[in-house]
């Protein structure tokens, strides 16, 4: 099978390399602008080469893969929900990803509403009139699915890019289940 034909992801956490060893002087930190530079140029190229819709789908899938791997490697999925969220909140804060706040969590129906403030992807972005945190949508999906073993749909309701100063996401079970 050639590279172009495979469907399964091959990413492994160790692909991120030994950062301590590789950057003895510069260390773990970089600038948010650099992170965004990569994401928004990639998005732009994807949109130009395929379409804006296609670019969004790729970003969601990439975010989802990232969320899945993040959950598997950085979080303890055996914790009960409240404690799991508290540890996720703590992780996202220390890693400088964003400030996670749960607004609503119905464990019975698996409906969640949460916000991410000072979001890495979009906080401070100029107004665009549409939400831009597709990568985050996927990221949250990946985490929730890995924790619950169920399939989720995550939608960004409010975003910095729609003038809302915080990104608000809703998550619910996929209809087909």
């Amino acid at each position: 099978m050639s590279e172009g034909e495979r469907t399964a992801y091959r990413f492994q956490w160790k692909d991120l390399g030994d950062i301590q060893k590789g950057r003895p002087n510069l260390g773990n930190q970089t600038s948010v602008a650099v992170y965004r530079l990569m994401q928004y140029t990639m998005r732009d190229v994807l949109a130009a080469k395929y379409s804006a819709e296609e670019a969004k789908i790729v970003l969601i899938l990439a975010g989802k893969l990232a969320g899945t791997e993040f959950c598997k490697n950085m979080l303890d999925t055996n914790l009960e929900f409240g404690k799991f969220i508290a540890s996720l909140q703590e992780k996202l804060k220390t890693l400088g990803v964003g400030i996670l706040r749960i607004e609503k969590a119905d464990i019975d129906t698996m409906e969640f509403v949460l916000t991410v403030s000072e979001d890495l992807d979009c906080s401070g972005l100029p107004m665009k009139g549409e939400t831009v945190c597709e990568y985050d949508e996927g990221f949250i999906e990946g985490i929730l699915e890995t924790y619950t073993n169920k399939q989720f749909v995550v939608k960004e309701i409010d975003c910095w890019a729609t003038g809302d100063r915080t990104c608000r996401f809703s998550a619910r079970l996929k209809e087909s289940q």
Partner: peptide, 16 residues
């Protein structure tokens, strides 16, 4: 916008 942020924070505090 600022009220939405306040609303979101209040909901979060309620949940917590």
């Amino acid at each position: 916008s600022p009220y939405k942020q306040l609303h979101s924070n209040l909901r979060h505090l309620t949940w917590q």
